[in-house]
Design a binder for these strands. Structure first.
Length: 867
RNA sequence: GCCCCAGUGGCGGAAUUGGUAGACGCGGCAGACUCAAAAUCUGUUGUCGGCAACGACGUGCUGGUUCGAGUCCGGCCUGGGGCACCA
């Protein structure tokens, strides 16, 4: 006889051991079933899993288990994004070696993930800090180098003074380091870059074909790449020009406004500006001043437009004899376009502010619709809309688009010092990916600096470049620079004394190809082409939106790079992407304004008090769980108390997976109660019925239960396919409710047809719930007398005859207002539906004897009587 | 400033994509069981009027298209996200 309650924490261990013993989650390429690769973004081994992990991995596991049951050969691996700063911080703060800290954390988190009952192939586990992994990554780096995809550039970099490292643009948020939160400084420094801009156009174009990606993510990436079409215009310097600067190139998206140009401005970092600074103290101090201001949004907001007249003049390309002054201006970025612009104050806000400050002409050249050319003037706001060209010579009368074309056509054909005066050009906002980090705990860049040969790659036979174990963290900066011997090597070309590159790679490189390594994690090559050819692309990738740009763009680039270097056969790594929402919780503060953990708070009626002192508590906003606000709940505690299935069920219930979910104690209780209820229901069915052959016929009640069970099966199937887990959960509730009602009305001794229907419904309940609550499902499956594992059973197919009702209920409206409803044969003819509807008492009353103008009949849906 | 998304009961949300708004869950209320509590079970629960049948109103606001609008179109309000001196 069954116990009163289901002891989930205990039984879950049993089922996990049973799955493990059968090795059913191990994936093999030698399989004839269609492949399916499910991947969740691998975790950083911080030491403990958090609720965000629980949500992410539960969703992935539902997909993995469902696809397996659907007859796919499923790859569902797990690994660790294990390089990165926190390990070094731990070393600094606690004196633990980063490797030990990391591997200890991995061990702890592996145990926690295992307690969730995830259907993972643990034989493929990898950590990016494994020597084998970063060895292969160094080989990839060298292959990318050979393919011309790696460059060394000295450029202005974002320097994080707290973490003492360079950051990629993507890692600077509001002028601050994404990890340290420190104000980022600008520095000129040589660094290694991946030439992601080579693929700017392709990365943009291919977004259109990523149909199973959220539109939001595709849009964010498109904006980040930031394509704009325009014209590269060459301005000739009038009179004598500084050496090599007789032409100033300017990129513009508004060549139509060229007749309204009143100045040219160059960036303080423009080569011409530097040349001028060599002879002008005034220019030197101005440039110096420009470098001083920060780049944060707030700093830019208040920054005045400032410039310095260089005394140089350039010839206007379209107006014979006209010249424009050349300024060095603080608002021109060297990083975008050519680092120089022409200013048309009437139609660009920045140019207008600048022109007003320096008394430059403001010439309107685009006339807004409805304005009179004689009276139209520009006030405080530049006009950026469409209109008719004026004051523009041969452009007059054209609209903006036509004028752009006309200017381009003419200048492309005009010769200027032997070359075309202009060229059509496309510019991108995207910059090359700087991967150099001045840190210890990362993949060493396999390069050597030789005083006589320059920079030479480490020969592949000398790989891996292994991180030294004996490092100290007692000084700020890069421990690799401080190591007494590590960086001293002989040059592989000349054999002379040389030094190693001490920069390590951005950890986003590590996560740009791990999905490929999972296909053959033990391969002696970076990737095994047979295995990646089989498994890739990832069919369903699941992770947080916070990676919508950084990680996902890098991985898309890197896959192209691997394709080019023969390490992959595809360009797009992730066919389907799903970005799940965050886990949130109420925040609590005590009377002293100190944050409190949820477990320190007790709810009493409508108010909250301190669990120990009874002092009142201020309940704050619902925010995403974070240690700093203490609104965190530890998954381990929940799993120990309620079992993994409760945590999983909660994560999937109620809230759509892409939205933020609010974790609450009440919600957990509710989830747990429901799982107990399912357990009781199934055990009651098992006790009251025996497995038997399908009866010849079914009574009305048994038939109704069967319909409910098969309908729920179909609905859950459709919901999981669309990753709408919350509606799948609701369907399972409905089936449980139907089963519960039938069980009661069937009494202690159900008739044979009802017994069959009850058992069938209980089995279907267990089967359709199994991807979400796999342990409980196994328990129920066993209770119903099965000796096999449900995890190895195929997904149920509902009987189609049970999905269609013979009669349907359709609403009847009069003049668009619902007045009654009508139950009629599913395939009833239109005329019959019409006739039946008109006989309804409520309809007759609502019509009130008026003349019927029209009757709209949508079979199986609605009737609308228009009177 | 530019681009995008979302507003539905007390709450999370559902609605076959133009066809009965509020499925399912949480919470509330009433009841059964119990000495009592917990657990469990049953009923009820958008608002207003009515004993009821029923009626009116109702998907942020506003106007429109349609036999019919939560869903489509225009304008506005609020909240959220992304980018941001990008030429």
């Amino acid at each position: 006889m069954a116990a009163e309650r289901y002891d989930a924490p205990k039984r879950e261990k049993h089922w996990q051991a049973a799955w493990e013993e059968r090795g059913i989650f191990r994936a093999s390429e030698a399989d004839t079933r269609p492949k399916y690769y499910v991947l969740e973004m691998f975790p950083y081994p911080s030491g403990r899993i958090h609720m965000g992990h629980v949500r992410n991995y539960t969703m992935g596991d539902v997909v993995a288990r469902y696809m397996r049951a659907k007859g796919h050969n499923v790859l569902h691996p797990m690994g660790w994004d294990a390089f990165g700063l926190p390990a070094e911080n731990a070393a600094i703060e606690r004196g633990v070696h980063p490797a030990k800290w990391t591997y200890d954390n991995i061990a702890a988190m592996r145990g926690q993930l295992k307690s969730m009952g995830l259907s993972l192939d643990w034989t493929r586990e990898l950590a990016t800090c494994d020597l084998d992994y970063y060895h292969q990554q160094q080989r990839l780096f060298l292959d990318l180098l050979k393919a011309g995809l790696v460059d060394r550039k000295t450029r202005k970099v974002n320097w994080d003074p707290v973490d003492r490292t360079v950051l990629a643009n993507e890692q600077v948020i509001d002028g601050r380091g994404w990890r340290s939160g420190a104000l980022v400084e600008q520095r000129e420094q040589p660094e290694w870059v991946f030439k992601i801009t080579d693929y700017a156009e392709d990365l943009l174009q291919a977004l259109e074909r990523l149909e199973r990606w959220p539109d939001k993510v595709r849009l964010m990436q498109a904006n980040w790449i930031g394509r704009s079409e325009g014209l590269l215009v060459r301005f000739a310097v009038a009179g004598s020009a500084p050496d090599g600067h007789d032409i100033i190139e300017v990129f513009t998206t508004r060549p139509d406004t060229l007749f309204g140009a009143s100045f040219v401005a160059i960036s303080p970092d423009h080569p011409l500006a530097k040349t001028i600074a060599e002879r002008s103290a005034e220019a030197r101090s101005f440039i110096e001043e420009c470098h001083h201001h920060g780049t944060s949004a707030a700093a830019l907001e208040t920054l005045e437009k400032k410039g310095l007249d260089t005394a140089l003049r350039v010839r206007h390309p379209l107006i014979e004899g006209a010249t424009l002054p050349v300024f060095i201006a603080n608002f021109i970025l060297m990083e975008y376009g050519t680092g120089a612009v022409f200013g048309c104050p009437a139609h660009d806000q920045r140019d207008l502010e600048f022109a007003r400050a320096y008394g430059l002409p403001v010439i309107p050249v685009v006339l807004p619709p409805g304005e009179d050319a004689k009276t139209f003037t520009i006030g405080d706001a530049a006009y950026t809309g469409d209109g008719t060209m004026i004051n523009s010579g041969f452009l007059d009368g054209l609209d903006v688009a036509a004028a752009k074309e006309a200017v381009a056509d003419r200048l492309v054909k005009t010769k200027l010092k032997g070359k075309a005066a202009a060229a059509r050009q496309v510019q991108y906002r995207l910059r090359d990916w700087g991967i150099s980090r001045q840190r210890y705990w990362g993949c060493p860049i396999p390069m050597i600096h030789c005083p006589s040969c320059g920079i030479v790659p480490v020969p592949e036979s000398d790989l891996p470049v292994k991180l030294p174990d004996d490092v100290s963290f007692d000084r700020p900066g890069n421990p690799l620079d401080h190591h007494p011997t590590w960086s001293r090597v002989t040059c592989p070309q000349c054999g002379g004394k040389a030094t190693r590159e001490t920069d390590t790679m951005d950890t986003f490189v590590d996560s740009s190809w791990y999905f490929a390594r999972f296909c053959a994690p033990k391969s002696t090559e970076p990737t095994d082409i047979a295995a990646t050819g089989y498994w890739l692309p990832v069919d369903q990738y699941i992770g947080g939106v916070e990676h919508a740009i950084l990680h996902l763009l890098y991985a898309r680039f890197f896959t192209r790079a691997m394709h080019k270097t023969g390490h992959a056969l595809i360009d797009e790594p992730f066919r389907g992407l799903f970005t799940q929402g965050m886990v949130t919780h109420e925040t609590y503060k005590d009377v002293h304004g100190k944050w409190l953990l949820p477990e320190e708070v007790r709810k009493e009626g409508g108010s909250a008090v301190h669990a120990k002192t009874g002092e009142p508590i201020v309940v704050g906003a619902i925010e995403s769980m974070s240690k700093s606000k203490k609104n965190v709940v530890d998954p381990e505690t929940i799993i120990a108390a309620y079992g993994a299935d409760t945590a999983r069920w909660f994560m999937l219930s109620d809230t759509p997976p892409e939205r933020d979910i609010e974790w609450s104690a009440g919600g957990v209780e509710g989830a747990h109660r429901f799982l107990q209820r399912v357990w009781r229901l199934v055990h009651e069915v098992a006790a009251k019925t025996k497995a038997a052959a399908k009866p010849q016929g079914f009574g009305a009640e048994a038939e109704a239960l069967r319909r409910a069970a098969h309908r729920s099966t179909a609905a859950v199937t459709a919901a999981i396919e669309k990753l709408r887990f919350n509606t799948a959960v609701a369907q399972i509730y409905e089936l449980a409710n139907a089963l519960s009602l039938s069980l009661q009305s069937a009494g202690p001794h159900p008739s044979p047809d009802m017994a069959y229907a009850l058992r069938e419904a209980a089995e279907l309940l267990a089967r359709i719930a199994s991807p979400m609550v796999p342990h409980l499902a196994e328990e129920c499956w066993a209770a119903l007398g099965h000796k096999t594992l449900l995890a190895e059973h195929p997904w149920p197919t509902p009987e189609s005859a049970l999905l269609l009702e013979e009669t349907v209920t359709i609403a009847v409206q009069v003049n668009g207002k619902r007045r009654d409803e009508l139950t009629i044969a599913r395939d009833a003819a239109k005329e019959d539906i019409e006739a039946a509807a008109l006989k309804l008492e409520n309809v007759v009353r609502a019509v009130g004897g008026r003349k019927i103008k029209k009757i709209v009949v949508v079979p199986q849906r609605i009737v609308n009587v228009v009177a």
